[in-house]
């Protein structure tokens, strides 16, 4: 699994991307794993009271996980994950 970080998440993670050979089975497991790897600031940005952080945009293969089951969204080793803070422009 290839995980990419953008905007403030690049600063929080201290790296642009990260590869996992055997990812957890779902988004909840992945975020727990990443939060453990990157520490408390990262954890606060991705999780809030056991839910997806309100200012997190998490894409799995380009699809927003809020549309595909949230934390329960299933994952496979072939998935691409993109981690964004809430961003905008125009």
């Amino acid at each position: 699994m290839h995980i990419k970080y953008f905007a403030t998440f690049r600063e929080l993670a201290g790296e642009r991307s990260f590869d996992l050979d055997e990812p957890p089975p779902d988004v909840a497991g992945l975020l727990e794993l990443l939060a453990t790897r990157y520490g408390d600031r990262f954890r606060r940005a991705v999780l809030a009271d056991g839910h997806l952080g309100p200012e997190l945009i998490l894409l799995v293969n380009g699809r927003n996980v809020r549309l595909t089951g949230g934390l329960a969204t299933p994952l496979t080793p072939r998935d691409d994950v993109s981690v964004f803070p809430m961003v905008a422009g125009g």
């Binding site: 990419k4 953008f6 905007a7 403030t8 945009i57 894409l59 380009g62 699809r63 927003n64 993109s82 964004f84 803070p85 809430m86 961003v87 905008a88 422009g89 125009g90």
Partner: peptide, 17 residues
């Protein structure tokens, strides 16, 4: 968000979707 990265922060997210 907009102050830190400007509107150009959108390039990556539009590309990812």
């Amino acid at each position: 968000g907009l102050k830190a990265y400007g509107t150009n922060v959108l390039v990556n997210i539009l590309n990812e979707v």
